[in-house]
Amino acid sequence: MVHFSIVTINWNNLAGLKETYQSVVRQSHRNFTWIVIDGASNDGAVEWLSRINDPQADITSEQDKGLYDAMNKGLVKGSALPGYTIFLNSGDMLYDETVLEKVAAAIEQAEVRPKFIYGDFYLRTGSRRLIESHAKPIDKLFIGMPSSHQAMYFENEHLSTLRFRDDYKLSADYCMLIEFTNGIEKPREVLQLAEPLCIFDLTGVSEQRRFEAIKEDVHIRKRFLKLSSFKNYVLYGLHYVHAHIKSIKAARDKRAA
């Protein structure tokens, strides 16, 4: 049976952490470990986590150096186990109780055991409105993330050789994905599922600082994809306009809430 390491990073988001936990414990597929990396929260999360008496939970609460330092701690723990790792941060949720079951079945039925699995997802706005989003083909990785990282499953043996790079403060997940897929056989070892796998909380730091993140993306594409300057800056312009439109819609959504 396929094992999943579900890594949850948290810092002062107790309400979101509880939602994430509920989406995990409702799963019909029971072969998983919930790995929580809490950054010494002071909003009651540490106390709440201390009351969880669950053999499937691996909980750490300590000071860290930021989001990707915490995600690296989770990566190390998750990839030390067999199977696959998913990064489901506090506030994010698995789409429904059958997600792990469906992903496990797809892995077991694949002709070639995949090293990377991903699928569709929903975005959740600050007013809790859900927006359906579809994953892009892996060969479009140069454009940006093919899906949200909460809808991505990384094979642990290969994942254990990588880390989130600490020189990227907002887009280290994009960089890690590029390095991960550069090390596998595409598309043979990649499995895209045409169904929603998660609900991504849009109120996270990377979304709030989206304009800074797309600047990091330019550097990542140049460094790891060797993309030409012309293509890189055309993409930068398109992403900038898209982010601006999203920020306007988000402001409208917030006023309507």
Rank of each mutant, 00 (worst) to 15 (best):
L14E: 14
L177C: 08
T125G: 05
C175A: 15
K115L: 08
N42H: 12
K186A: 13
S50R: 03
Y68S: 00
K215F: 03
N12L: 04
R210V: 15
A40S: 12
W11N: 12
N13V: 04
F4E: 11
A57I: 00
Q56I: 00
D217W: 06
I184Q: 07
F180G: 08
V25N: 05
F116W: 05
T33D: 09
G119P: 04
H3E: 12
S61P: 01
S206K: 09
L67W: 04
L67T: 03
F164E: 13
V76P: 01
K226C: 12
I59F: 04
D64I: 11
D201A: 13
D120T: 02
E216R: 06
D217V: 09
F180K: 07
N10Q: 11
F224T: 00
I143Y: 12
D92P: 00
L94R: 08
L75I: 01
G39W: 07
R129F: 02
L159T: 10
G74T: 00
I9H: 14
I131F: 12
F116V: 02
T33R: 13
Q56P: 01
I117G: 11
I138E: 01
V25L: 07
N42D: 12
S50I: 01
R30K: 15
V234N: 11
V24W: 07
D43A: 06
S133G: 02
V205A: 12
L81V: 02
Y174I: 06
S229H: 14
G144H: 09
H158A: 14
F154G: 08
K215Q: 03
L81F: 05
N53T: 09
Y21S: 05
R223S: 14
S147M: 03
E155M: 08
K186I: 10
H242E: 14
R255D: 08
I143C: 03
L202D: 04
E62W: 01
I35C: 09
G44Q: 07
Q56R: 15
D54F: 02
I59Q: 11
E155A: 14
L75W: 08
G83D: 00
A257D: 10
A135Y: 04
A45T: 15
S79L: 00
V36D: 11
I138S: 04
T20F: 06
L225A: 09
I52C: 03
F142N: 08
M176L: 12
F4L: 08
Y153P: 06
G237D: 09
M152Q: 10
D120M: 03
H158F: 04
A45P: 01
R128A: 12
R113E: 02
I86W: 03
K186C: 07
L123N: 13
G66P: 00
L162C: 05
T181M: 04
A40R: 11
M71N: 02
H29G: 09
E212F: 08
D166Q: 12
D167Q: 14
R128T: 05
A151D: 03
L202H: 05
A104L: 00
M145L: 14
L75Q: 05
A105V: 01
A243P: 03
G39D: 15
L17N: 10
P137K: 15
F142S: 13
P196C: 12
N72V: 00
R188S: 06
A40K: 13
W48T: 05
V190M: 02
E157C: 03
R129D: 06
R252N: 14
P137C: 14
D139H: 07
R163Y: 07
